[in-house]
């Protein structure tokens, strides 16, 4: 069944802060095989003008995806998550995420479309630091494939 268009524009409450740990950044950088010193060596990061080690560009996805769980699991929206695939992903940064950041995510539903029986849901996540400054905006496009026989 098509998702209710009236959910477009709905904004969910900001999440409790996620604290970015330097060892979590190291673990993520190692998992993607990226040995760039700005991820693990504060001096190398400072030499590039950053106050502390920074996270790889896609690191913040897991933080915003967890926040998007509020939307995905909203019983009123009624998304069938067992049929969902990740369609598109986009990030727009004001600055890189760095160790010590306490990030809060405000998720909202930017668009709902129905194409060939598939439901397409665009969730925007606005990520701010503890001072309320914008860090990054993420867009997650989820595609719920049509149920068989639907």
């Amino acid at each position: 069944m098509a998702l209710d268009q009236s959910f477009v524009g709905r904004t969910y409450p900001p999440t409790e802060p996620y604290e970015v740990g330097r060892e979590k950044i190291r673990e993520f950088a190692e998992a993607v095989g990226d040995a760039h010193p700005a991820y693990t060596d504060a001096e190398a990061a400072k030499a590039l003008g950053h106050p502390d080690v920074i996270a790889p560009p896609t690191f913040v996805f897991s933080v915003t995806f967890r926040a998007a769980g509020q939307v995905i699991a909203d019983p009123q929206l009624g998304l069938d998550y067992s049929r969902v695939v990740h369609g598109d992903q986009k990030f727009a940064y004001s600055r890189p995420v760095r160790a010590g950041d306490r990030l809060s995510v405000t998720s909202s539903i930017e668009a709902i479309k129905s194409m060939a029986g598939n439901d397409i849901l665009d969730i925007r996540g606005e990520v701010h630091d503890e001072a309320g400054e914008h860090v990054v905006t993420t867009w997650i496009k989820l595609v719920a494939r049509a149920a068989e026989g639907a």
């Binding site: 760039h36 590039l48 950053h50 920074i54 369609g87 986009k90």
Partner: peptide
């Protein structure tokens, strides 16, 4: 790796 600074990325998007 090309720019030398991962902080140089302003936007990044893909379709899977």
């Amino acid at each position: 790796d090309w720019t030398g600074d991962p902080g140089s990325v302003v936007e990044y998007g893909v379709r899977f």
